[in-house]
Structure formats: C-alpha cells, structure tokens
Design a binder for these strands. Structure first.
Lengths: 192, 192
DNA sequence: CCGCGTTTACTGAACTTTCAGTCGATGATT
DNA sequence: AATCATCGACTGAAAGTTCAGTAAACGCGG
C-alpha cells in the first residue's frame, strides 16, 4: 500500500469507474491518488500508458476476486464453481461495481483507441479460456470447441448484461436471473 | 433535409461513430455538417447539449434500418425473420457499423450520464419487445415470459458480441456464428 | 403593397479554459 | 555520491465558448 505505483492504479480504477475513461483527467487522478501529476508521468509515461496499465491491473484484479473463495468454505463442484465465477461479476458491492464499470469503459474505449485492443483482446481471451476450462470440467465428454463457444457466449452475455445493469436499463437481480438461465441452457446443450 | 439542425444531428451521429463521444470535437462536427461552429452553439447551447440531443436522436432512429427488408423479396418465415433481424446488426457495412458504434457509445455514456438513461431504457425495451414478438411467432406455444427472457438474452448477447467485434477482440464472422448458435439454443429450448 | 421594426438563422474572429505533458529542484535510499 | 522517487510550477496547443454583427424572412400599420 506504500507502493505509490499501485496506489495510482487503484486510484485510476476508481476514477474510471466514476467518470469513465473519457472523463479521466490526469490531474484528477493525481488528486485521487494523493500524488503529483509528474509522478504519474514518471511511472506511466503518458495517458495512454496509464490506461494500458490500468487495464492490466483491472483484469488481474478481476481474476483474483473471481477465483478466490471464502476461506474454509466447502469446495464447490464444477457446476457450482462455474455459476459462482460468472455471477460474482454481477453484484452491487463497491469493488465489483468499480471493476465492472471500469472494464466496460475500457472495452468501449478500445473501439476508438487501437492501442488498447491488444491487451484487451488478450485479457478477454484469458477470461474466456478460464470459463471454457470450467465448462470442460462440468461436461468433460463434450468437445473442446463446444466448451470454448459456450464460454464465449456466456462471457459476452455477461458483458452485455453488465452494461445494461450499470446503465440503468435492467435491475441487477433481473440480470442475474437471465445469466443463470443462460448457464443452464449452455450446460444442458453440452450434456446431450 | 434543408433543416440544418437535423443535419447537425446526423453529422454528429457520424462523428460519434467515427471518434466516439469523447472524441467529438465541435469544430470537426461543424466541418462535417458544413456549418460554422457558432451555429452549433446557437442551436444546442454547449457541447453537453449537442451530446444530449444527438444521443436522443440516435435512440429514436436506432431501429429503423433493422425492420426494413429488400423490396420485392420473398416473405420470410418467422424463424428466418428472427435470425435476419438479429444478424443484420452484425454486418460490416457503413450504415450498420455507424449505428452499432453510436449505439454502443450511447450505452457506455449512459453509465455516467443519468440524463440519458430514460431514453435508453425505453429504446432497449422496445427492441426487446420486438424480438420477443418474433420469438412468439417462432414458438407460439411457449409462454410469453419465456419469449421475453429469450429476447433479453439474445439482445444483450448481441450487444456484447457487437462491442467485442468493434473493439477488435473477435472477428465479425465469429460473432455471427456465436449468435446463430445462441438463437438455435434459445429456439430449441422453447420448442421442448 | 410598401416601408419599417423585429425576430431568426447564421458567421468570423476573438477570447477563455482545459489539459496533457515538461523541467528543474529536492528529499530519500543504498 | 549516485540512482530513484517525488514535487511544484510551468507551457503550448487544442478545444470550448462568446460576441458583435449581417442577411434574409416575417409581421404589420398605413
């Protein structure tokens, strides 16, 4: 926590979640992190660099809170694990909301900023693979490409539902319900 | 069409599709619309006003191009109609790309601008209902709430796939394939 | 139907603000 | 003493906004 670099990344996530990538001002970020603007340039070179590193930071952090389970909790079976992993991203708690918002922003920004695309594509791929792997454990007999396709659909759906929630088009619980059914559907499909 | 105000809104849609909401420069918009920057302020007060009106404009206009079919083409059965309607939004032609991009921007902006939410929610609802209605024609025996849920999932998935495509995470054809399978899945589910 | 006050649509140029990025100096650490 | 981390003050360019004014349309009393 005394690591200013990390503090800046955390602050960037908060600012992005609050104002959007579009609304991120280096000065505001500096204030949020309690450092000078120069230090930000010292660590991240330029605005694009901030964005790039923040994206990495977000995807790493997302992985962490997604993967971790409460200590001492009973181990989940594959199906429950899959459901947990996906549904964890649809929760109205600050950390998650912040991450979802920032992630959505970065995705939306990448449409216009080619610089972000490679990292984003990579992070997306990793996430999809993680879900595909869980899919594989739920339905070991189905072929790998089918796992992958299901994983892509579920993650894309989750992203779609997530923005709808954050942009006030549907309530959270509704989004969760829809996603649960989708998981059900995909699993049933592979089950034959 | 001689109405400059509308011309400005159309131009703004194009500029937003090209540069994003954040990338919209009043001067560039003026050039695109072939008017002076001052006229834009005359009609819309300030930059925020431009954005507000344009995003309303986009959400009103959004579906127009989805519904129309080529004149004189053979009528489609319900299933084909459903597929067409959804897949039309995943095409790499200027009009569609422009609309998808602008729509994505609108959705992303609404996360931070509560003003936009009502219009957006309304436009989303209409779209979902249109698809639910098609679902109903494909599977008349299934209950209406099931049609609605399927429609919500398919449209949310489409939005998710659309940004992934536009942000360079997956190729267009891949997105289309995933969506087709999802339609297949949802239809099969309702078919019993 | 003609002059005349008034509103509407519009412009070019000046003015102001915002914001990413730089520079030199200074404290810390090894 | 040398490298690393950090700051405050600054800058240039870009972009947003204002403003004084013009030209055409519009209504209207005579």
């Amino acid at each position: 926590m005394a690591d200013r670099r990390t503090a800046i990344l955390q602050a960037a996530t908060r600012v992005i979640a609050r104002r959007g990538v579009r609304g991120l001002r280096v000065e505001e970020l500096a204030a949020e992190a309690g450092v000078s603007t120069s230090l930000i340039y010292y660590h991240f070179t330029d605005r694009a660099g901030i964005l790039r590193r923040t994206l990495e930071f977000i995807s790493e952090r997302a992985e962490r809170y997604t993967t971790e389970r409460a200590p001492g909790a009973p181990p989940l079976d594959a199906r429950a694990e899959l459901e947990q992993t996906l549904l964890l991203e649809l929760q109205d708690i600050p950390n998650v909301r912040e991450n979802s918002t920032a992630w959505g922003e970065l995705r939306a920004s990448a449409v216009f900023e080619p610089d972000l695309r490679d990292d984003l594509a990579k992070a997306t791929l990793e996430w999809v693979q993680e879900i595909a792997e869980l899919m594989g454990r739920v339905r070991p007999t189905a072929p790998a490409p089918a796992h992958a396709a299901a994983a892509e659909r579920l993650t894309a759906l989750l992203e779609g539902l997530s923005v709808r929630w954050l942009s006030g088009s549907i309530p959270l619980e509704h989004a969760r319900g829809l996603l649960e059914e989708a998981i059900e559907l995909e699993v049933a499909r592979l089950g034959g």
